[in-house]
């Protein structure tokens, strides 16, 4: 624990030092990336649904798709990408000192981070929130019934603090049982070492699928925290920030307009909807402000897909998906009552 503290202090210190050092570098990130010939996109240690390694050593996941989308927008080729997996202690430093061009790794957008770490969050690509899983036979159906319960939680994250806040606010006197590793936390929960386990709902859903008998457990309806997860870039390069932001928006917008990986060629050739034609670069000059080619958005959809497709693949019920239902959640399109909303592309 002490070690972790040392590391955090060290990381914060070096982040502060680099901030001063890199503010002076004037070269635009887009030019650096183009000259280098690949995008360096930072993710974290594997995290189900967002970024994981498959058995062949390839990265996949929702956040990896954002990296691929940006690479496709710049180069027209999603494979011109170097995924860097950086520990959470070093994540902001690695972005600040220019090692990474982009951070796409389930970082929660908070005021402190946005204002004090020298980075800018672009726009959430996933809305998460903390919840609870309990055994079905416990009879608990609401988090407010967890009075005096022992709750398994991973230590050193905001999860633990949120749990304490929730317990205090509702006078529940919850006893937190803390773990360093989420696998051990879940094992303990499965063996009856605690009454509930808590973490972000996306992981709860994923982990639930991995339980021996998933139907014996339920995820409680309450969400006790707001976790808007957003890609982030270094502060001070607005063009680059726009590129990443509008890559995410292009994916969301494509879903709204019904453009998919499969029909994007057809749409570009035959669509009459001016919104589609503008977005795919058939007419207008949306690309000029971004400093990209005319078919930047086309490339994103062609190479990676629209938001709905990506969600289904990695978060939903695709072969590599972790089975989190999208319908009715914050991650549905705004037209379906969710929060996924792209400003107009015109």
């Amino acid at each position: 624990m002490k070690l972790k503290k040392h590391i955090a202090v060290l990381a914060a210190l070096s982040a502060a030092v680099t901030l001063g050092a890199t503010a002076a570098s004037a070269e635009s990130t887009l030019n650096i990336v183009k000259a280098r010939g690949n995008l360096r996109c930072q993710v974290g240690p594997p995290s189900p649904g967002f970024y994981n390694l498959d058995a062949n050593g390839n990265w996949y996941g929702l956040d990896v798709s954002v990296c691929q989308g940006v690479a496709a927008a710049i180069f027209g080729d999603k494979s011109k990408l170097e995924i860097q997996s950086v520990s959470s202690q070093a994540r902001f430093t690695a972005l600040a000192n220019g090692e990474s061009d982009l951070l796409s790794r389930t970082a929660t957008w908070t005021l402190t981070r946005d204002t004090q770490l020298g980075l800018d969050f672009v726009t959430p690509n996933f809305y998460d929130g903390q919840g609870f899983t309990v055994r079905k036979d416990s009879g608990i159906t609401s988090a407010l019934q967890l009075k005096g319960a022992r709750v398994c939680v991973t230590t050193g994250t905001t999860t633990e603090l949120n749990l304490a806040d929730f317990s205090r606010k509702n006078h529940l006197n919850i006893k937190a049982v803390t773990f360093g590793d989420y696998n051990v936390r879940d094992d303990t929960f499965l063996k009856g070492g605690c009454d509930a386990t808590t973490t972000d709902k996306s992981s709860l859903a994923g982990n639930l699928q991995a339980f021996p008998v998933p139907s014996n457990y339920i995820i409680l309806p309450e969400t006790i925290s707001k976790e808007p997860l957003a890609p982030a870039v270094r502060q001070g390069d607005n063009q680059w920030e726009d590129i990443v932001r509008w890559t995410v928006f292009a994916m969301i917008n494509a879903e709204e307009l019904g453009i998919t990986q499969a029909n994007v060629d057809d749409m570009r050739a035959n669509a009459t909807d001016p919104n589609v034609r503008r977005m795919l670069g058939v007419e207008g000059n949306l690309n000029e402000g971004l400093g990209l080619d005319k078919d930047w958005a086309y490339n994103i959809i062609k190479e990676v897909g629209n938001y709905g497709e990506i969600y289904e693949k990695y978060m939903g019920n695709g072969p590599q998906g972790i089975g989190i239902p999208r319908k009715g959640s914050l991650n549905a399109l705004w037209t379906h009552g969710g929060m996924m909303y792209s400003p107009p592309m015109r």
Partner: peptide
């Protein structure tokens, strides 16, 4: 690598 197995979707939680 060994720790990443438990994060790969088909082997979620295998640690």
């Amino acid at each position: 690598m060994l720790r990443s197995i438990s994060k790969d979707t088909p082997w979620l939680g295998l640690h």
